Simulated assay, not measured.
Amino acid sequence: MGNDLLTSLNFAASGMETQAMRLRHVSENIANADTPGYHRKVMSFDEAMDTGLVTPGPVRLDHSELQTIYDPGHPLADATGHYQGSNVDLVIEIADAREAQRSYEANLRMFDQTRQMTQSLFDLLRR
């Protein structure tokens, strides 16, 4: 039983750590939404084959087309008055942030419930 509780704590902790990293990348994307030439970062999730724990996968750059912005007064504008903005879509980033937050909270609840069960087990053993 103790090993099962430890495994549950490890699963929840790995999920929280991965979602925290995902939130960090989403925050960087939002912070750089107005940075010319910025490609948003995307992260995948991997499952360790031997343990089943969730781990952050490699961070990749989204190579979708950059937004073309017309602003003749911008220092990076070409002869036509255009420059390359970022490919960050704030709606997508906010949705990703909410999804990561909810997943983090679910893992936190699992971690807390496991901790409470462990405490109850210890209380029973002390009697």
Rank of each mutant, 00 (worst) to 15 (best):
G2W: 08
L5E: 10
L6I: 12
L6A: 10
L6K: 10
L6N: 15
L6H: 11
T7V: 10
T7I: 13
T7A: 10
S8W: 04
L9M: 14
L9K: 03
A12H: 09
A13K: 06
A13P: 04
S14K: 00
G15R: 00
E17G: 06
E17H: 09
A20P: 06
M21R: 08
L23S: 10
H25S: 05
V26I: 11
V26E: 04
S27V: 03
S27D: 04
E28N: 11
E28P: 00
N32A: 00
A33N: 11
A33E: 15
A33I: 07
D34M: 05
P36T: 11
G37Y: 05
G37L: 06
G37I: 11
G37W: 05
Y38T: 04
Y38M: 08
Y38L: 06
Y38C: 10
H39D: 10
R40Q: 13
K41T: 02
K41G: 01
K41C: 00
V42N: 13
M43T: 07
S44I: 02
F45M: 09
E47W: 02
E47T: 14
A48V: 09
M49N: 06
D50K: 05
T51H: 08
G52E: 12
G52F: 12
G52C: 04
L53K: 01
V54I: 15
T55D: 02
P56Y: 00
P56A: 04
G57R: 01
P58Q: 08
P58T: 07
V59Y: 11
V59M: 08
R60C: 00
R60H: 14
L61M: 07
L61P: 01
D62K: 01
H63K: 12
E65T: 14
L66C: 02
Y70T: 03
Y70P: 07
Y70I: 01
D71A: 11
D71E: 13
D71H: 03
D71Y: 02
P72D: 12
G73A: 15
G73H: 06
H74K: 04
H74Q: 06
H74N: 05
P75R: 03
P75W: 11
A77C: 08
A77D: 13
A77I: 06
A77W: 07
A77K: 00
A79K: 01
T80M: 09
H82E: 15
H82N: 12
Y83T: 09
Y83Q: 09
G85V: 10
G85E: 12
V88H: 05
V88Q: 10
D89A: 06
V91W: 08
V91M: 11
V91C: 01
I92M: 12
I92G: 04
I92V: 15
E93P: 08
A95D: 05
A97I: 02
A97Q: 07
R98K: 07
R98C: 00
E99P: 00
E99R: 14
A100S: 08
A100H: 00
Q101R: 00
Q101W: 02
Q101L: 02
S103L: 10
Y104I: 04
Y104S: 04
E105F: 03
E105V: 09
N107A: 12
L108N: 08
L108H: 04
L108P: 03
L108A: 15
R109K: 13
R109F: 08
R109S: 13
M110C: 02
D112P: 03
Q113E: 13
Q113A: 15
T114F: 08
T114I: 06
Q116W: 00
Q116V: 10
M117G: 05
Q119E: 15
Q119N: 13
S120W: 06
S120T: 15
F122H: 10
D123Q: 15
R127E: 14
